[in-house]
């Protein structure tokens, strides 16, 4: 059986206002307070705590990143400096060793020259001496031969 009671029904109807209205309003207001206490406040607290946590951790992380970047830059500078100074030390050492080599070479050459000169002079003097001796000896012998020859005559 189809029953459609619409407007103007004495009993019931679609627009049948009664105490349902205020009681429902009271119910919804109560529900608002209950949900505020059980849902909106606690969940809001958790969500906002998390948001704060995320914000502070992000700020922390950012700060740490900046610090790390600064340290990295410092270290890189130090590394560069160290590399430069090492290069300089190497260059200096090379120069030093070069100079030492040159000096040593010059010294050795000079010494060698000096001893060669000395040797030559000695040889010369001994040769002169020997020649002189030889000359004197030959003169003496010559004289002796002359004397013997003269005496034999």
């Amino acid at each position: 059986m189809t029953t459609l009671l619409l407007f103007g029904a004495t009993e019931g109807g679609l627009f049948d206002f009664d105490a349902t209205l205020p009681l429902m309003a009271v119910q919804v207001v109560l529900l608002t307070f209950i949900l505020n206490a059980l849902f909106f406040k606690p969940v809001g607290r958790v969500v906002e705590e998390r948001e704060a946590y995320v914000t502070t951790s992000r700020a922390d992380a950012k700060q740490k990143l900046a610090q790390v970047e600064k340290l990295e830059k410092e270290l890189r500078d130090q590394l560069k400096e160290a590399r430069n100074s090492a290069q300089k030390v190497i260059e200096e050492a090379e120069k030093d060793s070069d100079q030492l080599y040159r000096e040593a070479l010059a010294l050795a050459t000079a010494e060698a020259n000096a001893s060669r000169e000395h040797a030559r002079r000695e040889i010369d003097s001994q040769r002169d001496a020997a020649l002189n001796q030889l000359k004197a000896d030959s003169d003496k012998l010559g004289d002796l031969i002359v004397e013997r020859l003269l005496a034999a005559k």
Binding site: D16, F17, L21, M24, V28
Partner: peptide, 12 residues
């Protein structure tokens, strides 16, 4: 679906 409920909500 009851007019009382919706009017209650609207008046709130």
């Amino acid at each position: 679906a009851d007019i009382n409920t919706t009017v209650a909500l609207a008046l709130l």
